[in-house]
């Protein structure tokens, strides 16, 4: 008697359950999308790569793997952003909209530096 998600059932679900299903589905879809992003780690006060090439429109996720805060930012004309500070276990992403060389630093630990080359 497994009637789970038989055709038409979704519309018949109570609103609360429907929202929960949408939430869970969007969570997994979100993770699938996030998994596809290039991820740059921040560990031992270093970025996991010194250089990275991406296309215009692509995003990069910055994951903090250190047991203290980092604050990724760039003041480069091709991409000016400040991801703010966040702790171990958190990631924040940035989308690169213009071609050019983007110098990236940690505001707290300026020895952490890397370059993202954004091309058309």
């Amino acid at each position: 008697m497994n009637r789970w998600l038989r055709e038409g059932d979704f519309l018949q679900m109570k609103t609360g359950i429907r929202i929960s299903v949408i939430f869970v589905l969007s969570f997994f879809v979100g993770h699938l999308v996030a998994d596809q992003l290039p991820v740059v780690g921040q560990k031992d006060k270093k970025f996991s790569v010194e250089r990275l090439a991406v296309k215009v429109g692509e995003s990069v996720s910055f994951a903090n793997e250190d047991p203290f805060f980092h604050n990724v930012f760039s003041l480069s004309p091709a991409a000016t952003f400040d991801l703010g500070s966040y702790p171990q276990g958190e990631s924040r992403a940035v989308t690169f909209k213009e071609a050019g060389e983007v110098q990236i630093e940690c505001a707290i630990h300026p020895s952490m530096q890397m370059v993202i080359e954004v091309t058309e």
Partner: peptide, 14 residues
Amino acid sequence: GRYKIRPVRLMRGA
């Protein structure tokens, strides 16, 4: 402080 060198919000007064 550092904000004058790196104008990132967290650096105000750092």
